[in-house]
Design a protein around this nucleic acid. Structure first.
Lengths: 137, 137
DNA sequence: CAGGATCCGAGCGGATACTG
DNA sequence: CAGTATCCGCTCGGATCCTG
């Protein structure tokens, strides 16, 4: 997709003749978006909600490792970004459903590319991790 | 790319007949990879290094906003993951170059998809942000 | 030039207890 | 069931000073 020009100034000209404008890169919204969906749980929830709408506790069980606090916070954040919708059914006991908005579903595609990369190179990453001396400063 | 099966169990079966195994999702390495390259600067550096190798201060100026500490730490992390190589030229004053490994360059592709999405939907995200009442708990 | 060392505030994120 | 409220440790990440 690096070859398809959409009219928007592409941030990734690595295989294009253009020698890249660094200012354009530094000011690009890539960082912002990553700060929003790049946290510990957001993309996991987006991926999970991408399969079908889920109830609150359904998500809680599915991710299993996330705390109630973080699940709520993350869902609220995704909702505020317009990536996730929230529907309350006024029943007893109450039922709340979460799902992806069209915007969220559009995010699912590039996210899937990254997820696929992660799965494919998982072993490779872990191997290098152990090999390299971890002298973190 | 959601339709292409690579032999690896796909985490994203949202448009596939398979109703998704949630255990597989929770245990998938997507979260791990995001924890590694999903921080504030990693993907920005990967994108920047994807254009051509850079010197240390060159990166420092290009990103401009990153501190020395974080630049070094992030580069070390990417190096430990095998995404970035580091080459020291024993000159005076010393010159250190950073660049993408083949693994890092392979990451550039899915990253570009996400970056493109970010650029395309930047306005949309910001609009929703202001519209929605921010009741974060 | 390319970092290392140290200090520090801010926020993430988990645990627990409580509620409509 | 679907949250809210509070406490708390931990890490992220910036600022500053120092070095080979």
């Amino acid at each position: 997709m690096s070859g398809t020009n959409t009219g928007v100034p592409s941030v990734l000209a690595h295989d294009l003749p253009r020698p890249v404008p660094p200012d354009e890169l530094a000011a690009c919204p890539v960082g912002d978006v990553f700060r929003r969906v790049g946290d510990k749980w957001s993309m996991l929830l987006v991926i999970l909600l991408g399969t079908r709408p889920h109830r609150y506790n359904e998500l809680h069980r599915a991710v299993e490792g996330i705390s109630q606090r973080m699940l709520t916070r993350t869902l609220r954040g995704l909702e505020a970004d317009g990536l996730v919708w929230r529907e309350v059914h006024p029943t007893v006991p109450p039922g709340v459903e979460y799902g992806l908005t069209p915007l969220g579903r559009s995010l699912l595609e590039p996210l899937s590319a990254l997820a696929d990369w992660a799965v494919r190179h998982e072993a490779e990453l872990n191997k290098v991790r152990r090999t390299a001396p971890n002298r973190s400063g």
